[in-house]
Every structure is written in structure tokens, then in C-alpha cells.
Design a binder for these strands. Structure first.
Length: 271
DNA sequence: AAAAGCCCCTGGATGC
DNA sequence: TGCATCCAGGGGCTTT
């Protein structure tokens, strides 16, 4: 579910309210992708300094240490003064003096990992290989183009890999490639300078607009207030196989790339 | 080194 | 109604 826009929308929806809170307790449900990495009791009493995002990870800064949260495919966070009793898919609660932060994640591909700092091994293992932040000042066009040129993989796979640019998942990779008029199967090494320039702009544009719309809610995503996103209504190709391209009318085509679905317009995205 | 597959897990939609 | 199959927003790890 959650790509960069959904993670950022989630962050914005509770960061201010949890900042300054004191941890009062932790409740763990069924196992997530990785173990927490510390005794939950150790977290009690610590203060929440703020919430940052790196790629699709949320970093909950404590006065000592950091909690890395990842929403996986089906995760969502809620933050409320009073939470209902935990449901079968609520696998992590962080009770604080300002309210309870709860991770709901049916598929349990998500994770909550404690590390003594973002450079500590438990965090660095996950964060060190991440690429450029597409909405940040470090999303450098020459570096992006050079990074693409040295790879033989399909352009869409390079975007999803996250080691060149982070946060672009299946929906936004399809959408950005459509906006840039690039065929998802083109090898990175064959992407021209004008194409990578368009793609660089399209990634920023589509992610920023998605944040504005509250993200995409395909099934059940909602921010920490329980509000849904609406960007899916503006999708040009994602999930629209067989439907007419919104630009030229050609039926949108579906292909499989590395066990993921890819959608594109064969006319608008010639190469 | 880079690319391609393999899984982790649950649930909803579809088809017979 | 019941059961099988396929698909789903991710990504680390293992194998080529």
C-alpha cells in the first residue's frame, strides 16, 4: 500500500501530536517482518523528539535511540487518545502521554525496529543502501541520469529497487513513466538525457501531487486520523488495463515485470 | 557487481 | 455454497 506519498501523509498526520510525548508502554501482537530488537520495557519513559521519513521508512526519534517503522504492503498507522481494543491485525501499540500510536498490518510485511541511533547497525543495515530522496534537494539530475545509464535492468525495475531513488513503488513508477512518456521495459542504459530529465521531473511531480491528495487508497490505506487518500482517482494508467488511455484513447496495456504488474500506454510510451 | 527469483502473510475478487 | 486460483501498495535475501 504505502509508497512515499502514503508514508509522508501518514507522518504529517501525527508527527506534531506525538512530538514531546513520553512513552508509557508497548504492546506487541503477532510477529512482524523483524523482531523489535530490544526489550519493550526499555522504551518506557523515553521522550518522542519528532518523526522523520527516509524513503518508505518512518523514523521516530526518541531522546535515546530511534524506532524505524515500515508499513510493508498492508500497513497503516493510527494515532488516537483512546484506541479501541486491539484487533487481530493490530500488531504494535506505542502508548504515550499524548495518545496511542498503533500499527495495523494484516499481511505483516511491515516492521518496527529499535536502534540506538540511525547509524547503529540495526538501522544502518536498512537505511544505508537507500538512494536519493526524490522530493529533497539531493535529487540530482546528472546523478540520476548517470545512475540509470550504468544499468541494464528495465527502467521500472530500477525505480522500484530504491537504491538510486527512494519511495517510488508500483503505482508511482507506472504513473511517472507514463508522464515521462517512457516505456517501462526500456533498459536504464538506453534512457536518453531528455528522457531522464522528463522522468526526474515526473517523479517529483507525481509524488508531490499524491501527497497533496492524501496519497492513494486502493483498499484500506488511511492516515493516522483515519482519512483516506484520493490520488488513485487521478491515475493515468495504474490499474487501468484495457481501459482507454486518458490522453490518446489507446487501451492501457498490462505486463508483468519481476512479479509485479506494470501498466502503460503503448502509444504514449513508445520507447 | 548486477540482475532475477523467492519468499514472508492475509484477504478480496473471480471462476468453476 | 464451497473450493481453487490469482492478485495486491514491499523489499531483504539467495541464487544466477
Amino acid at each position: 500500500m504505502p509508497e512515499l506519498p502514503e508514508v509522508e501523509v501518514t507522518r504529517l498526520s501525527f508527527a506534531d501530536r506525538i512530538t514531546g510525548a513520553r512513552v508509557e508502554g508497548v504492546r506487541l501482537g503477532k510477529p512482524l517482518r523483524w523482531p523489535l530488537g530490544c526489550d519493550p520495557a526499555e522504551l518506557v519513559g523515553r521522550a518522542v523528539r519528532g518523526v522523520r521519513r527516509r524513503g518508505k521508512y518512518l523514523l521516530l526519534d526518541l531522546d535515546r535511540g530511534v524506532l524505524l517503522l515500515h508499513l510493508g504492503m498492508s500497513g497503516s498507522l493510527s494515532f488516537a487518545a483512546r484506541q479501541a481494543p486491539a484487533g487481530v491485525h493490530d500488531h504494535f501499540d506505542l502508548a504515550t502521554s499524548h495518545g496511542v500510536l498503533r500499527l495495523h498490518d494484516p499481511r505483516r510485511f511491515g516492521a518496527v525496529v529499535y536502534a540506538d541511533g540511525e547509524t547503529a547497525p540495526a538501522a544502518a543495515r536498512l537505511l544505508d543502501k537507500l538512494g536519493m530522496e526524490p522530493l529533497g534537494p539531493d535529487f540530482d539530475l546528472p546523478a540520476f541520469h548517470a545512475g540509470l545509464r550504468q544499468r541494464q535492468a528495465a527502467i521500472k525495475q530500477i525505480l522500484l529497487a530504491g537504491d538510486l531513488v527512494v519511495g517510488v513503488g508500483n503505482i508511482y513508477a507506472c504513473e511517472a513513466l507514463f508522464l515521462a512518456r517512457i516505456r517501462p521495459t526500456v533498459r536504464g542504459a538506453r534512457v536518453s538525457k531528455p528522457q531522464s530529465m522528463r522522468l526526474h521531473g515526473a517523479i517529483r511531480d507525481v509524488l508531490a501531487r499524491a501527497v497533496q491528495k492524501g496519497g492513494s487508497t486502493l483498499r484500506d490505506f488511511s492516515n493516522a486520523h483515519g482519512e483516506r487518500g484520493y490520488f488513485q482517482l487521478e491515475a493515468m494508467v495504474y490499474g487501468r488495463a484495457g481501459e482507454p488511455c486518458r490522453v490518446c484513447g489507446t487501451p492501457v496495456r498490462w505486463v508483468r515485470q519481476g512479479q509485479r504488474s506494470t501498466y502503460f500506454c503503448p502509444t504514449c510510451q513508445k520507447h
